[in-house]
């Protein structure tokens, strides 16, 4: 093949024909699946400067999920691939707690984990994929999650001030902070003066009231 300066790509990497969670399929970008029939989808990704295996292990350690997932109060392993999840449905101390059983469907160390709920008060399924970043610096973590929550979804949103889709985005953000820095910064406990009517309105409507997970025990 004749080489022309116009076709020279001295830094180009081999393009992946496909990227996990159907972000790229046969070289084409695909948008996230659309919400339909009461099913909500959310796809989100973050670049985390840790190797895929470490991140996989952090994610797979389900009993530690309350450290970085919002509103999750407790997770107990009930078998090699099953666990029982409990979650608060509002920000109050005495909030109603719902729970469900979850099952790992696919478990490829350092590559991906897929799960789904198998009974209980939440109907959800998800997948997390760990892929080396394009230039080899860090790992791209992509989460694809699906919920069927019917009436619960909108009630939940008004109660906790956060749409369940946004909660997935926030959880990945907390996961990244915890993986990269060992903690999840928060300001909710800082003393502050009165924020006034507008400030208080913003505070609840923008989801600032959702307690930031502690990152530790």
């Amino acid at each position: 093949m004749s080489t022309s300066p116009l076709t020279e790509k001295h830094c180009a990497e081999d393009l992946p024909p496909s990227i996990g969670a159907s972000v790229v399929v046969n070289g084409r970008y695909l948008p996230p699946p659309e919400d339909e029939d009461g099913k909500l989808w959310v796809r989100t990704s973050a670049l985390v400067l840790k190797d895929a295996q470490t991140l996989y292990e952090m994610w797979r350690n389900v009993e530690a999920a309350p450290r970085w997932q919002e509103h999750i109060v407790n997770v107990v392993e009930t078998g090699a691939t099953t666990s029982r999840w409990s979650m608060k449905t509002s920000n109050e101390d005495d909030a109603k707690v719902i729970s469900w059983e979850s099952e790992v469907l696919a478990d490829e160390p350092g590559v991906r984990i897929a799960w789904r709920s198998i009974g209980g008060e939440s109907d959800n399924a998800g997948e997390v994929i760990f892929e080396e970043a394009p230039n080899g610096v860090g790992t791209v973590v992509t989460v694809l999650q699906e919920f069927r929550m019917g009436k619960l979804a909108s009630t939940w949103e008004t109660l906790v001030g956060r749409h369940p889709k946004q909660a997935v985005v926030e959880n990945l953000r907390h996961f990244k902070a915890l993986a990269e820095t060992g903690e999840i910064p928060r300001t909710q406990l800082d003393p502050h003066g009165d924020r006034g009517v507008i400030g208080n309105f913003k505070r609840s409507s923008y989801g600032e009231t959702v307690p930031t997970p502690t990152g530790g025990n």
């Binding site: 926030e170 902070a177 990269e180 820095t181 910064p185």
Partner: peptide, 27 residues
């Protein structure tokens, strides 16, 4: 500016662009 020191932007020394220190990042 509060910087975590460990994210991709801190590593590039764009401390004011740190990924991890804004608890209200979604806003």
């Amino acid at each position: 500016t509060i910087a975590c020191g460990n994210c991709i932007f801190c590593k590039k020394k764009y401390w004011a662009a740190c990924d991890n220190t804004n608890p209200n990042a979604h806003l």
